[in-house]
Write a protein that binds this DNA or RNA. Structure first.
Lengths: 103, 103
DNA sequence: TCAATATATATCAAATCCGACATACTCAAC
DNA sequence: GTTGAGTATGTCGGATTTGATATATATTGA
């Protein structure tokens, strides 16, 4: 395991083999992930408002509650990406829109 | 609530007001969501293989287990979008790649 | 100012997702 | 056909996320 060819593949993908602590990479993944969720939540709020829906009305559309919608839009860490994406799909956010959102 | 202006906004977004059962829309969201997860899981498998990583090795990189990686790649419904996206970020999947993946 | 409406925040039990483990299946290499 | 590495599948207790509820804090319009 971990032969030279594999090392080269991973290095090509941006990994430093053997000399970088992986928790640093984890932090990188974690912060990218948080940035993604924030971007999606901001777009969600903007889109809901442009449709002139209240949080309560939108909550009904996704069979959730007003408080959870508020948490979504606030970027609350206790909200899953699943719920955010399902919400955007419910508001028929287009693939093109999503591509513009990605940080 | 539900004034004419709001109806027009929702209709512009693809919603039929008052005559479509919302569970039909939910099914649409749900199936789109599943399609998205499947697409991501397939890409994850392809990318891991191209890096010549075993499921066990990759599991170590994301501090998870071989069985969970197998479930991710199999499109198991009990795997969250969060875990899938974090996995792709760990493998440094680019924004451009993600845009190509989106169904 | 003052209601009414909208949004934010806190809490909770139930549902879902997690890593871990055990074990079974697949398939090369020998 | 045996062995061993890689992958798939099932289960489980613990952790996280859920919708719901209550309540506090804006925000809006008369």
């Amino acid at each position: 395991m971990m032969d030279v060819q594999k090392q080269k593949k991973l290095e090509a993908a941006g990994w430093k083999i053997g000399n970088a602590e992986d928790f640093l990479e984890l932090d990188q993944v974690e912060s990218s992930f948080i940035a993604l969720k924030i971007a999606l939540s901001q777009h969600l709020k903007t889109r809901r408002q442009s449709l002139r829906l209240t949080q309560k009305e939108f909550a009904g559309m996704i069979h959730s509650s007003q408080s959870r919608v508020a948490k979504m839009e606030a970027g609350d860490p206790g909200v899953s990406l699943d719920l955010l994406v399902k919400s955007l799909l419910t508001l028929k956010t287009s693939k093109e829109d999503i591509e513009k959102i990605l940080p």
